[in-house]
């Protein structure tokens, strides 16, 4: 994989995700606070084509960036919660999601936008489940980490479901530009039994 292309694509999608938050969240009550996860879409695109280790390292980088982009309010001693950049929850979740895609890609027709969107949805379920689980573990009495302020796993998963639906819809739109750019990525398409089965 061409890592320069990866860096540029990651920067652009992260920029869009951060910069267009106001537009993505278009004040419809039902999906309030929902936003597409563009880094997830990029990760799925890479993991559907790239070799195993490349996919996992790319997922790790995307996850770390997602971690660095977030601020979590943690319950610390005193009145005010502490806002901290937690490293790990998204990184692990992205690796888990990449693993899901790696398991699925042998049976997914990657030229189809619908299949791509569906893969984003399924991988996203893994992503948000792992992320929610890791943050839910924080604050358990025997662990040193503080709980996230106002944390509700249920609320988080409901929000995650909306994010996933939104992400899958955006994935439908992004499939064509991503597919057209495949030449720039210089993927070494893996061959083997799973590939032949497609």
């Amino acid at each position: 994989m061409n890592w320069l292309t990866f860096a540029i694509a990651t920067y652009l999608l992260l920029l869009l995700q951060v910069g267009l938050r106001g537009l993505f969240d278009f004040n419809v009550t039902a999906i309030e606070g929902a936003e597409p996860n563009l880094l997830l879409i990029l990760m799925v695109f890479i993991a559907m084509v790239a070799p195993l280790h490349t996919s996992l390292w790319a997922a790790l980088i995307l996850g770390l960036l997602a971690d660095l982009e977030q601020r979590q309010a943690l319950v610390v001693a005193g009145d005010e919660p502490m806002h901290a950049v937690l490293v790990g929850p998204w990184a692990l979740a992205f690796i888990a999601a990449a693993y899901v895609v790696l398991q699925m890609r042998g049976v997914v027709y990657r030229n189809s936008p619908l299949a791509f969107a569906l893969t984003v949805f399924i991988a996203g379920m893994g992503l948000y489940l792992v992320h929610t689980a890791i943050l839910s573990i924080r604050g358990l009495p025997f662990l040193p980490g503080e709980a996230v302020a106002g944390w509700s796993a249920t609320q988080e998963l409901i929000g995650a479901f909306l994010n996933l639906v939104y992400s899958a819809l955006i994935a439908l739109l992004l499939h064509l530009p991503l597919r057209s750019s495949e030449r720039l990525w210089r993927f070494r398409i893996p061959t083997g039994p799973a590939r032949r089965a497609v």
């Binding site: 979590q72 943690l74 610390v76 502490m82 901290a84 950049v85 937690l86 490293v87 790990g88 929850p89 990184a91 692990l92 890791i134 573990i137 924080r138 662990l143 040193p144 980490g145 503080e146």
Partner: peptide, 9 residues
């Protein structure tokens, strides 16, 4: 991911 916030931050 499970370390105290101030330390990670």
């Amino acid at each position: 991911s499970q370390l105290p916030g101030p330390m990670v931050h």
